[in-house]
């Protein structure tokens, strides 16, 4: 049994196939999802989180089919995500952003301070969210997703906008989340992060699953280098 299983998912926009019959799974721990631009990674996240209906295929969470469920229902089943193009609530303060998420799962609002400290942006707690730097906004999205106490956490390019020290701290956080038994799926372009922290990596190219394996297997895979370096 896998925490997440995507079975034969295809997404078409008109005649263009963005995701082409992809089957993959993710277990507790950190799973990397990499591939060049336009490979279909974010579209696949949209399908898993329920924001987009696939043209065909199924999404299973702990073996239960959730393909027909809406995004808010999936959240209640333990799915959370962040966005590549940031989606923070700009009119609210950083703290309020997290409180909205806590309240939706009926968790106490006072946990917000703890979560903000955990991702390392406690100093921004009272700033309006559309005024904080990109890196802090990304970490805010992470804190907000964690506030729902997810079993399956989808992170879309979390490290872009982070400096070296912040990236290292983020890696450490990934380890903790993994130790807590959560399944984290990571779309990421920072290969140090992917190679250093993922237990398993899936590579997408042109909408299809190119290969899967451990970080060292991926690193030595010829097709992967070709997909990136052309």
């Amino acid at each position: 049994m896998s925490r997440l299983r995507v079975e034969g998912v295809t997404v078409r926009f008109g005649e263009v196939t963005a995701v082409d019959d992809v089957t993959l799974s993710a277990d507790p721990g950190v799973t990397g999802l990499i591939g060049p631009n336009g490979a279909g990674k974010t579209t696949l996240f949209d399908v898993i989180s329920g924001l987009r209906k696939p043209s065909s295929g199924r999404v299973l969470l702990d073996d239960a089919d959730i393909t027909s469920k809406g995004p808010h229902q999936r959240s209640r089943l333990g799915v959370a995500r962040t966005f590549q193009r940031l989606e923070v609530f700009g009119s609210l303060t950083v703290r309020e952003n997290v409180v909205v998420a806590l309240e939706s799962r009926r968790r106490p609002a006072k946990l917000a301070a703890e979560l903000l400290a955990r991702v390392g942006i406690a100093e921004f707690a009272d700033a309006q969210a559309d005024t904080v730097p990109t890196g802090a906004a990304r970490l805010l999205e992470l804190a907000r997703a964690l506030a729902t106490d997810p079993h399956l956490l989808l992170l879309d390019e979390p490290s872009s906008g982070l400096d070296r020290a912040e990236t290292d701290a983020f890696g450490e956080l990934l380890r903790q989340l993994s130790a807590e038994g959560r399944a984290v799926v990571l779309v990421e372009h920072d290969m140090d992060l992917v190679m250093g922290y993922c237990d398993h990596v899936h590579v997408l190219n042109l909408g299809q699953l190119l290969t899967s394996g451990t970080p060292s297997e991926i690193r030595s895979h010829e097709g992967v280098r070709e997909a990136y370096l052309g």
Binding site: S49, G50, L51, G70, P71, H72, R74, S75, R76, V79, A80, R81, F83, E87, V88, F89, G90, S91, L92, E96, N97, V99, V100, A101, E103, S104, R105, E141, R144, A145, A147, T148
Partner: peptide, 24 residues
Amino acid sequence: GRLGRRMIAVKDSSAACATLGVNV
């Protein structure tokens, strides 16, 4: 309060709200 935060959250990003479990 809670409703006000949610209203504004929905206004700013319905998509994020939905993925956080808020029934928009």
